[in-house]
Design a protein around this nucleic acid. Structure first.
Lengths: 193, 193
DNA sequence: CACAGCGAGCTAATGCGATTAGCTTAAGGC
DNA sequence: GCCTTAAGCTAATCGCATTAGCTCGCTGTG
């Protein structure tokens, strides 16, 4: 076998870094090739298409995000776990906006797509965190969806520059986390919607 | 003046309808031209580029969404206004996913971009609705951002098929609205974060 | 009623980015 | 030291956005 300078994994890693710099929409095979010091067609020796590349970036991103969130929640519970997990996710998205966009641009290609377990790991972390609130089992799915909605929505809006710079966005995010925490505590005690 | 079959407005309208069918990412000048019964280059007599077209769709979408939300909130207050406004927005996004994507893909081109007043109208409706909760003035910005985050996040995730079909998404949305309503009421009485 | 101009639409051509075909060559296993 | 294999290259194709320049019908005017 000849020298293995580049691999699908290393190409994906480089593409992920690139996408965080220039934005997911501005990813091009030519730009990536230039970064890697090779000609554009040579990329096809490692990834089968640009869609494939985007898909690999998405899996990478989802895996990294899953790790970061799990580590943040690790050893904490209740409000602390929520705050740590949410902050970890926001930090990840801020540092890797392109990767995050890629992760959200992807649809699983089939039942054995590695993207599926990767995203399930993220969901599992959130579920573990939520379980600490002792919600009514029937409520958990709704709480989960609400949580995902706020976090995803905030991250997306922030990444898109959707918030005016007047008031601190950091402050808004802690306020938001607190808001969710209060609601979950209340919901747990009430058991009602 | 020759016959005015097509105008920038009518082309934009057709493009908006198209984008809702095929998805924003699959919009192409060729496809739109075909729909309009003209050849691709003729489109450039009405819009200056595909980016221009996308921008016009975004303005249209933001304007329509603003109308829909304003009308829903009209004559209601408090929980009712929140529920009606949120439902109106979700309905709009479900019926016009392509338009909504376009609206979020756009950055204002300058200080006199008509997109700016259009989006401000949306924000103004939410602000009017929130004022009914009598929040502490310092909290309003955070509440607004939180509200936008949940609604945007939910709409986006739903449009992307991010929710598994197991449990009713409608139910989750009413739960979410209720969750926000409870939180806002509590925040109003407490005045605390 | 003839006519002059404008502008919508058309065809032909350009350019860029993704992708494919086929060649070349260096490296690792025998 | 040879032989296979695959990484990388050049040349070519394709699709899609965009530009250039022509044409012709409508409309307002004399």
């Amino acid at each position: 076998m000849p020298k293995a300078r580049l691999t699908p994994a290393s190409v994906t890693e480089a593409a992920a870094a690139l996408v965080d710099e220039v934005g997911f929409d501005n990813l091009s095979m030519g730009l990536l090739a230039e970064r890697l010091g090779i000609k554009t067609p040579s990329l096809y020796k490692h990834v089968s298409s640009q869609a494939d590349l985007a898909h690999r970036i998405a899996i990478l991103a989802m895996t990294e995000a899953g790790d970061v969130i799990r580590d943040a929640i690790q050893g904490r519970s209740g409000s602390d776990a929520l705050a740590a997990g949410a902050q970890a996710m926001r930090t990840y998205v801020r540092e890797h906006p392109g990767r995050y966009t890629a992760a959200n641009a992807v649809r699983p290609t089939g039942p054995d797509d590695p993207f599926i377990p990767a995203s399930e790991r993220v969901l599992a972390s959130w579920a573990a965190m939520l379980s600490g609130y002792g919600l009514d089992p029937g409520q958990e799915i709704h709480a989960m969806r609400t949580l995902r909605s706020v976090l995803h929505g905030f991250a997306t809006l922030e990444a898109a520059g959707g918030f005016q710079i007047d008031t601190s966005v950091d402050e808004s995010f802690t306020w938001l986390i607190n808001f969710i925490d209060q609601g979950l505590r209340a919901g747990a005690s009430t058991g009602a919607r």
